[in-house]
Design a binder for these strands. Structure first.
Lengths: 198, 198
DNA sequence: TAGCCTACCAAGCACTTGCTTGGGAGGTCC
DNA sequence: GGACCTCCCAAGCAAGTGCTTGGTAGGCTA
């Protein structure tokens, strides 16, 4: 019925979660069937329910553990002692590192957050969304007041611009490709900070 | 069996298509059932098949007519006699106008192109993707060779950056909101061209 | 007024969906 | 060697899926 008493004890469970996450990221949550997951794992669909309560709980676990890790890292940057511009660069780099190391989770969050967020179980997604907004707005405000960023920026639009440009890269970036995530982050930062005009 | 001999003759059909498009955009294609569409239209699901062959043909018609209109407009900009920077600005503005006026179609294309593209019927989506790449790469190259854009740009990454930042706005932009699509385009262009740094 | 048309309903078919049930093979612990 | 545990299979259920079928009401045309 329930999973192992200590979830981390069994790594079969962790592997099933990884397989499910990859499929959710590739085909979408609703578009991935429990039979798809079971096939990819080499077992029958019913056997998945020895490890997990439901399909929902799989994606729930993936998103929660990823987000708690991500936001802890954001908080560290916010609390650090460095110039505003360096903080922004660090936050952008962190996001690209997340795309590299937690590709499935980022993709799932980007593609399914709107849909899942309507379910009560996933109401924390809206909270994390607000939290993300506060992180970036704080960084942008610090940047403006310190003189590192243009004072004539529309804060709200600038926030959306930064947020979107950072996370949308999950659509094409593939771990192990030509460029490392830090190289991509460098290029994005030069464009974001200084623009493409000469 | 088949639809009206002249599709534009009946506007009931056009309205059903609009209703379906809104639902596809909001809930996703697979996640929208023919019963959802019929409910929203106030008829029974079977009655939809008097107007359309299949659910697939509905989204097909939406995407094809939108894209043929969009790329005709891009071609006009490419062929026009104006400086490289003005062409880029025009192309960005055109994209935001499309988000405003064809919100559902843009959202569907952004969210479903990867999935639908795997079906042979929607193989033209990949062609349009290449065509879009050629449009933007041409604009960027003209910008660099004319001196309007920085010469040290990574063309490939710059293209992805521009493409993504333009279309991803469909996620939050809502027609009839605080800002017009042209105001949003202005803000995006200042950031894209000159960056957020001071 | 006969023939045809558009737009729809009522019912249901074949299939897919997430999930449940009962059980069994192989290992571990005392 | 008995009790327990982990991990899985075999079979199937109820709900939901896209789509089909036969039919009907009301209008338009000759």
């Amino acid at each position: 019925m329930s999973a192992a008493s200590t979830p981390e004890a069994t790594n079969r469970r962790a592997e099933l979660l990884r397989i499910a996450g990859d499929l959710f990221a590739e085909k979408g949550f609703r578009n991935t069937t429990v039979r798809d997951i079971a096939d990819a794992a080499g077992i029958l669909s019913g056997s998945l329910y020895h490890h997990f309560d439901s399909k929902e709980s799989m994606v729930d676990e993936l998103l929660q553990s990823f987000q708690s890790e991500l936001f802890a890292a954001y908080d560290e940057i916010l609390a650090s002692e460095q110039p505003a511009r360096a903080k922004i660069e660090a936050a952008v780099r962190l996001s690209f590192a997340a795309i590299d190391q937690h590709h499935a989770e980022v993709a799932i969050f980007q593609n399914e957050a709107d849909q899942l967020g309507r379910l009560e179980r996933f109401s924390y997604l809206a909270d994390r969304n607000k939290q993300s907004r506060e992180v970036w707005m704080t960084l942008l405000r610090e940047g403006i007041s310190s003189g590192a960023l243009r004072a004539d920026l529309d804060l709200e639009l600038a926030y959306r611009f930064v947020r979107d440009t950072v996370w949308v890269a999950v659509r094409w970036y593939r771990p192990g490709g030509d460029l490392t995530h830090d190289q991509v982050a460098d290029q994005y930062l030069t464009i974001l900070l200084d623009g493409i005009a000469s």
